[in-house]
Amino acid sequence: MKFGVIVFPGSNCDRDVAMVTRDLLQQPTRMVWHEDSDLSDLDVVIVPGGFSYGDYLRCGAIARFSPAMQATIKHAEQGKFVLGICNGFQVLTEAGLLPGALMRNRDLHFVCDRVPLKVERADLPWTQAYQPGQIITLPIAHGEGCYYADAQTLKDLEANRQVLFRYCTLTGESTVESNPNGSLNNIAGICNRRGNVLGMMPHPERASDPMLGNTDGIHLFKGLLQMAMGIGR
């Protein structure tokens, strides 16, 4: 399985992701410059965290117009996999690949922490290496991670089971106290209806190396590899 990691001016988590896919999982990985429009050799496109184009207009608002993102939209339309992490999630909503928007955190402060998440479903390639309802811990680092959508969009997301990760307590309850940024419905990560596009604010790539003492994140990538090898639930 070949991965591509988009590199924008301002990306700061691109090498972290490549370290996971290329070094830990031994998968071919290509760094994709934002002006590159040919993604035909890739199976998975990852839009990493950072501050694409300096977030000068609005998080992800400029990145959506880049040649690489226009090619990513076509990549997704073909049913291929797209993962947006943190700023990448913001870019995916701006590009229309995922519904809703990411707004300023509830307390208007940048949040850098490790938080518990509940895996809401484990029947997609992204999550099949987890157990349904499993509580995992992933790092977060964002100032605009508050997920917002109108009431009907939220209703549709829940009805279609598009919420894959939700902020929670260590015992799995979704409470105000366990919500680090004010996201509606404690949403931490969603997919599109087809299930091939995932956006999430927490950083799975920062919880993948055993040297860091937490490997909860690497199972997201391993789920894709299991799918590629024909291993699934």
Rank of each mutant, 00 (worst) to 15 (best):
L164N: 12
G189A: 13
A188T: 00
F165C: 09
C191K: 05
D156W: 07
M200D: 07
P180Y: 02
D156A: 09
E158K: 14
E144H: 01
H142M: 06
C168D: 09
T175G: 10
T169A: 10
V176F: 12
P210R: 07
P180R: 04
S174M: 12
Q226S: 14
L184T: 08
N196V: 09
C146E: 08
R206K: 14
I136E: 04
D150E: 14
N179E: 14
D216G: 08
L198N: 04
G195K: 05
R161V: 01
I187G: 02
L220V: 11
M211H: 10
I187A: 03
F221A: 14
A159Y: 10
Q162V: 07
K222D: 09
R193E: 15
L184S: 11
A151Q: 15
L224E: 08
D150Y: 04
N186C: 06
R166G: 07
C168T: 14
I190S: 00
I190V: 12
G143Y: 02
M200I: 08
P139S: 02
K222M: 14
L212Y: 13
I140T: 01
H203R: 01
A149I: 09
T215I: 12
G199W: 05
K222R: 15
F221K: 11
V163F: 09
N179I: 06
N186A: 05
L212F: 11
R166L: 06
M211G: 03
A151I: 14
T175C: 08
E158M: 09
C168H: 10
Y148S: 13
P180M: 03
T215G: 02
F221I: 13
H219E: 12
K155V: 07
L224C: 07
P202Y: 06
M200E: 12
C146S: 05
L212V: 13
R206A: 08
L170M: 11
E173I: 00
F221D: 13
E144G: 00
S178A: 14
C146T: 01
M200A: 06
N179R: 12
F221E: 14
T169R: 11
